[in-house]
Nucleic acid binder design. Structure first.
Length: 730
DNA sequence: AGCACGCCGACT
DNA sequence: GTCGGCGTGCTC
């Protein structure tokens, strides 16, 4: 006897699917991709049908019901999710849940679909007595079909009149599904369609022909800051829509890129093209609405951060990944996928081009473009006449400093202020001082959970851990020797702000870091003030290097470049180069001749000299041998196994046992560790890691496939996180 | 992850 | 004598 069997993903930390019989009564209405109710163990839960097959259902439980009458996941999306679960060694159920709006992964909650009453004229000739009724009817006849919300905007209390009109047969009333539109109230920005320069139009041509070919191809758009990458995106997306297909645009963080979103809206919304913007501020209901609309092909363009790579567009023609070097494309917890890499996979699966764009491409993408796996398109001229700024590296070994600022930089700031120009200062460390030190006995004050020093925040008068947010009071005396000489060491943005206030008492100084932008809209406020030139000096962490251009800035200073350079990670050079180049690019966009100073004790470092020259290729050539010799990505491949648990000994023992198994089956894969993680304790848990390194992916893959047997042997108190292609190993 | 079962200590 | 601690096993 042959039954219909559904293979279902359930949100538990297991890799396998669970099979259920589809009862006769549901056979006709059940489909792949649907969200279903299933009995699981002794409870009821939610699952997603990933495939349906024929077979013997003996011993299987029955599917209990459907949540919706249409699928939530398309077959293309299922293919991508299964690929990702396999590649990232992560349980499929959790992969599905990460991809979906939270409201859909939740048990019990059937998401409320908001509806509104919609009115249409039935009999316009009908005789009416009331003036309001007559006006209402005229309005509705004019509009043909109107929702209640729209009526409310025009009439103050329409209820009674509407009710009457329906009763007498003048109007027909229906329920319509309402999709919450967060931009409903924003006014549409003005589009300034710019004619493309030759480099831009060549790039667009290449992308357009790839769209028309209907097959995958990967592009790296390398355009210096201010070279007009966004305009290339806009034209390419336009071509994609003209070909009758949809576009997906990924950005690192929507809140930091409001101008990209508004340029898309300005360009396309007047033409009646619908854009869905998926950002972190959406309520779960709004997110769900957007998902449904995309799924139903009512949306042509999706703009969103990392998780938007899973947006259920059915007819993709182009995927754009803006600022592709940004590490925020990698999810750091749970299902540790990289949206930039998945975008390329999705492009391959759905036969559409993928466009990665950046002023400072990731080393990996540039490498792939050198190898020919990505087609490189270069924009090397700024569109707004402004020249690239002059960059000077200040050798701190030979400079007199007042606090954090060298005399050269102080003078430059003075000059800029006199000329009514704005100054941008980057110090990649928030708080007042990175740690407190007892001058009598040398004691430092550490986080009890994380084994790193607590950062001193002067304004809030507290010590705070930047990893777990542990807070302590500022000590009056040393807890070890009772000494009273406790001194802040090093400097953060808070201290720099204080120094600047003393040096330039009449300047308007603002600080922008995680502490001053935690309130909603605070980030945007600072940006707006900066644009309106209500700020003379803006101090901040790497946050100031992202997003907005500031036309009024003529001077940029990078302080303590070494703190970024010396992070013990093989990518610190890449990150520093990228950060310094990006922040330097903020200077003098409009008016020519911006000036940039980088202060460092290590002025010969190629990440600095290349950033000073704004020479990406030179940086690449310097970095390449280092990666090749050590077999680091992209010249080799990494997987990090992170073991964590409350009991340090237990975690260490488990990691050791695991590594002895790995050594036995390693083959050509290098096994490094186990060693305590760079942050050996984090949020109260002990952590050990084993790094797997291989020259070829298939070797690594083979090893990963053998891991399951060993994972089953782990004691329950120790958990293992597998991080495929880790981007930071902290 | 949930949820049950089961085996030990400290309480009415 | 029970209430409840958390180790262990299982989920189509």
């Amino acid at each position: 006897m042959s039954d219909f069997i559904a293979d279902i993903a359930v949100n538990i930390p297991l890799k396998q699917l669970f099979s259920y019989r589809i009862p006769e009564s549901l056979v006709s209405s059940t489909d792949v991709g649907m969200r279903v109710k299933i009995p699981f163990g002794r409870r009821l839960t939610v699952g997603f049908i990933l495939s349906i097959r024929n077979g013997d259902a003996a011993g299987l439980k029955d599917l209990q019901g459907l949540f919706e009458d249409e699928p939530i996941l398309s077959s293309e999306l299922i293919k991508l999710l299964r690929w990702a679960a396999d590649y990232y060694c992560h349980p499929i159920g959790q992969v599905v849940r990460t991809a979906l709006p939270a409201a859909l992964g939740n048990e019990k909650t059937t998401v409320k679909i908001r509806t509104e009453a919609i009115y249409q004229p039935l009999d316009p000739e009908i005789k009416l007595r009331g003036k309001t009724q007559q006006e209402l009817l005229t309005f509705i006849i004019q509009e043909k079909s109107v929702g209640l919300t729209r009526i409310r905007e025009q009439f103050s209390a329409p209820h009674a009149a509407l009710k009457r009109l329906v009763e007498v047969g003048a109007l027909q009333c229906d329920e319509r599904e309402l999709c919450r539109d967060p931009f409903r109230l924003d006014k549409l920005p003005v589009d300034q369609c710019i004619t493309l320069n030759s480099a831009q139009s060549e790039a667009v041509d290449r992308i357009t022909s790839a769209i028309d070919d209907n097959c995958f191809s990967g592009f790296l758009l390398h355009g210096v800051t201010g070279s007009g990458k966004t305009e290339v995106y806009l034209h390419s997306v336009d071509q994609c829509l003209a070909a009758g297909r949809q576009a997906l645009v990924l950005v690192p963080e929507i809140s930091l890129t409001p101008q990209l979103v508004s340029r898309f809206r300005a360009r396309f919304e007047l033409k009646g093209i619908r854009i869905a913007v998926l950002h972190s501020g959406l309520s779960s209901g709004e997110r769900y609405d957007a998902w449904r609309e995309i799924m139903r092909n009512q949306i042509q363009i999706v703009i969103g951060a990392r998780s938007a790579v899973f947006a259920p567009l059915q007819n993709l023609g182009l995927i754009v990944v803006d600022e592709e070097h940004e590490s925020s494309y990698k999810q750091a917890e749970g299902f540790r996928y990289n949206a930039r890499d998945l975008a390329l996979v999705r492009g391959q699966q759905q036969h559409c081009p993928v466009l990665l764009g950046s002023a400072t491409p990731s080393f990996a993408s540039y490498y792939r473009s050198e190898q020919g796996a990505l087609t490189r398109l270069t924009l090397d001229k700024r569109v707004h006449a402004g020249d690239l700024p002059k960059v000077e590296i200040i050798d701190l070994k030979e400079q007199v400093c007042d606090g954090e600022l060298s005399n050269v930089l102080i003078e430059a700031i003075q000059q800029a202020l006199e000329q009514q120009e704005q100054v941008l200062l980057l110090l990649n460390r928030r708080g007042f001082a990175p740690f407190l030190l007892c001058a009598d006995c040398g004691e430092t004050f550490c986080c009890p959970n994380c084994e790193i020093t607590l950062t001193y925040h002067q304004q809030k008068r507290e010590l705070r851990c930047h990893y777990c947010d542990y807070v302590d009071v500022v000590p009056e005396s040393c807890h070890k020797c009772q000494g009273l000489n406790i001194e802040p060491q090093g400097a953060g943005t808070e201290k720099l702000e204080e120094e600047l206030e003393k040096l330039f008492p009449s300047a308007r100084i603002k600080r922008m870091d995680r502490d001053t932008t935690s309130r909603k809209g605070a980030h945007q406020n600072i940006m707006t003030e900066m644009m309106a030139r209500k700020i003379d000096i803006l101090v901040g962490t790497q946050m100031i290097a992202k997003g907005h251009d500031f036309p009024g800035v003529s001077l940029v200073g990078v302080l303590a470049a070494d703190s970024t350079l010396n992070i013990p990670d093989f990518r610190s050079g890449e990150r520093s180069f990228s950060l310094f180049t990006q922040v330097a690019g903020r200077a003098g966009r409009a008016s020519g001749g911006g000036k940039v100073y980088i202060q460092s004790y290590n002025p010969e470092h190629y990440a600095l000299t290349c950033a000073a020259e704004q020479d990406y290729h030179q940086f690449y050539l310097q970095e390449l041998p280092f990666r090749q010799e050590l077999g680091y990505p992209p010249c080799g491949h990494l997987v990090n196994l992170v073991f964590s648990g409350n009991n340090n000994h237990q975690v260490q023992a488990a990691a050791k046992q695991f590594s002895s198994f790995l050594f036995r089956v390693a083959g050509s894969v290098e096994i490094l560790g186990p060693s305590p993680c760079p942050l050996a304790r984090l949020r109260g848990k002990s952590r050990y890691q084993i790094l797997l390194k291989a020259a070829a992916r298939p070797d690594l893959r083979r090893l990963l496939n053998r891991l399951d047997e060993q994972i089953a042997q782990l004691p329950r108190q120790v958990t293992l996180h597998i991080d495929v292609d880790p981007i930071d190993m902290l």
